[in-house]
Simulated assay, not measured.
Amino acid sequence: MSTLSISPVFTAPSALRAARRPQSTVRLTRRGRAVVFLASLALALVAAFFLGAVAVGSETPGEAAPTEIVMVGSGETLWGIAAELETGDDIRTTMREIERLNALESAQLFAGQKLRVPVSDS
Rank of each mutant, 00 (worst) to 15 (best):
S2M: 03
T3E: 03
T3C: 08
S5H: 05
S7V: 13
S7P: 00
S7G: 03
P8K: 13
V9H: 10
V9Y: 11
V9M: 06
F10P: 00
A12Y: 09
S14W: 10
R17Q: 13
A18L: 06
R20P: 00
R20W: 02
R21V: 14
S24G: 13
T25M: 14
T25H: 14
T25W: 09
V26T: 10
R27D: 05
L28A: 04
T29F: 09
T29V: 04
R30I: 06
R30Q: 07
R31G: 05
R31D: 04
R31Q: 03
G32H: 02
R33C: 05
R33T: 07
A34I: 05
A34D: 02
V35C: 00
L38G: 06
A39G: 13
A39W: 02
L41I: 06
A42R: 05
A42P: 03
L43E: 01
L43K: 10
V46K: 01
V46A: 12
V46G: 07
A47N: 11
A47C: 10
F49I: 06
F49S: 01
F50R: 06
L51T: 13
L51W: 12
G52T: 11
G52A: 11
V54I: 06
A55I: 00
A55C: 04
V56E: 00
S58C: 13
S58V: 12
E59H: 12
E59N: 12
T60A: 15
P61L: 13
G62P: 07
G62E: 12
A64H: 01
A65T: 10
T67D: 04
I69M: 15
I69Q: 13
I69S: 12
I69T: 15
V70M: 11
V70Y: 08
V70L: 15
V72G: 06
V72Q: 15
G73A: 14
G73Y: 10
G75N: 11
T77L: 07
L78Y: 02
L78W: 02
L78E: 01
L78M: 06
G80S: 14
A82L: 08
A82K: 00
E84Y: 10
E84W: 09
L85Y: 01
E86S: 09
E86T: 09
E86V: 09
T87V: 12
T87I: 04
G88Q: 01
D89K: 00
D89Q: 04
I91Q: 02
R92C: 09
R92L: 05
T93R: 01
M95W: 01
R96M: 07
E97P: 01
E97V: 10
I98F: 11
E99N: 08
E99C: 08
R100H: 03
L101C: 11
L101E: 03
L101Q: 08
E105Q: 13
S106I: 10
L109E: 13
F110P: 04
F110D: 15
F110Y: 12
A111W: 04
Q113S: 12
K114C: 06
V117A: 13
V117L: 05
V117Y: 00
P118N: 12
P118I: 12
P118A: 08
V119A: 14
S122G: 14
S122K: 13
